[in-house]
Amino acid sequence: MSKRTATKPEADTGIKPRQPCPCGSGKRYKACHGAAGGAADVIVTRPFEGLAAECELIALREFVPSATATLPLRGDGEITLATVLPMAAAALRRNDDRRFVGLQVQTHSGDISRDLARAVEWVQDAELGASLPVVGPETAPAGTVPTRLQDLLDPEAELEVEVHDDFSWWLPEDVEPTGEVKLSLERANAAIMPTARLTADGVKSAYWVDAGEKAHLRWVRPEPEEQLIAAMARLSARSELALDEDSRYAGSFRAHGLLVPVWDLDREKHPREWDEPAAALGRRLEEALASLEDQPLDAAERRARDGLRGRQVTIR
């Protein structure tokens, strides 16, 4: 096994070797981006931390089938973030000069933010009609910190997400799909589960999805996991964790450092009918979170917390 080269002196990078690496991995710089190959080896468990769009990025990456949003770039130019691109490409520049970057792609490092940033940088200079199948292996010089999405986006800007019923947006409006393109579109459209983004005041990154036998609400929450679970336990002990009588809390999954609670819903109801129940639940959660500061969980709430923990899984 080859040895990694030594970290660059502090004067070259501005970062002390024993400081936490700015990539967010939790490792020291000298053991992460400060060592050759470090960026490719390190798993960044919360890749979108520090961005106001973090929760939406996780939703679009993990479970929203067809959606787009304009990236809030710090500089000039317009790039559309997409859930899935044709052939699951990492990026493409269409012949009509629209630039796209895909979220649901294969990754070649442990830092999704870094891979996305490389796709953004690639598509900015790509030729018309060019497509980037995957983001390649790490090529940044040893001892440097590669560009990450946090370096390219306005950290305070949120994503204005548009959910689509199909993938017709893959092509310009005046282009009629034929041959393999048409077949690919048909296959992709057939796999979509109906999805809608809830839009009530105070409700962010919450998506209704019709999974066939059931409908679900998947809600990416920004709070630290232990605080969120404690607040949910407080509501559960009061029988206040459901959205209404036609719903029930099903469990939660972890994705990219955040928790995503899931509720089973009455699929006969229209997605818009869940806006106000979700907003009311959000207010109850905020109150429960605030109460934790001076009211520790009691015995019943601790039992409820243990039950909620038993219904968690990690997918990323």
Rank of each mutant, 00 (worst) to 15 (best):
M1Q: 15
K3E: 14
K3D: 14
T7A: 14
D12E: 13
G14T: 11
I15L: 11
K16H: 15
Q19V: 07
P20S: 08
C21G: 08
C23L: 08
C23D: 08
K27W: 10
R28K: 15
Y29I: 06
G34L: 10
G37S: 11
G38E: 09
T45P: 00
T45Y: 07
T45D: 06
F48D: 00
L51Y: 00
A52M: 00
A52N: 01
A53R: 00
E54H: 00
C55A: 10
L57R: 00
L57Q: 01
I58E: 00
L60H: 02
A67I: 04
T70I: 07
D76I: 03
E78K: 13
A82N: 03
T83G: 00
L85S: 03
M87D: 12
A88D: 12
A89W: 04
L92Q: 11
R93Q: 07
R93T: 04
R94K: 06
F100V: 00
V101T: 01
V105D: 01
T107K: 14
H108F: 13
R114Q: 15
A117H: 05
A117D: 06
R118D: 13
A119D: 04
V120Y: 05
Q124F: 07
Q124S: 14
A126M: 06
L128G: 06
S131L: 05
P137D: 15
E138Q: 13
A140V: 12
P141N: 10
G143A: 13
T144C: 09
V145C: 07
V145R: 15
D151G: 02
E156M: 07
A157G: 00
V161H: 00
E162F: 08
V163C: 07
D166W: 03
D166L: 03
P177F: 02
P177M: 08
E180D: 12
K182S: 14
L185R: 06
L185S: 05
R187E: 15
R187H: 13
M193K: 13
R197L: 13
R197N: 02
T199K: 10
K204T: 10
G212N: 05
A215C: 07
A215Y: 14
P222G: 04
P224G: 11
E226H: 09
Q227G: 11
I229S: 07
I229D: 06
I229T: 09
I229G: 03
M232S: 04
M232L: 12
R234K: 14
R234F: 05
S236F: 09
A237R: 03
S239F: 06
S239T: 15
L241N: 02
L241P: 01
D244L: 08
E245V: 15
E245C: 10
D246L: 11
D246C: 13
S247T: 09
Y249N: 01
S252K: 00
H256W: 04
L258K: 04
D264V: 11
D266E: 13
K269G: 10
H270G: 10
P271Y: 04
D275P: 09
P277I: 04
A279S: 12
L281Y: 03
L281I: 07
E287G: 11
L289M: 10
L289I: 09
A290H: 13
L292M: 11
L292E: 15
E301M: 11
R302K: 14
R303G: 13
R303D: 12
A304Y: 01
R305W: 05
D306G: 11
G310H: 10
R316F: 14
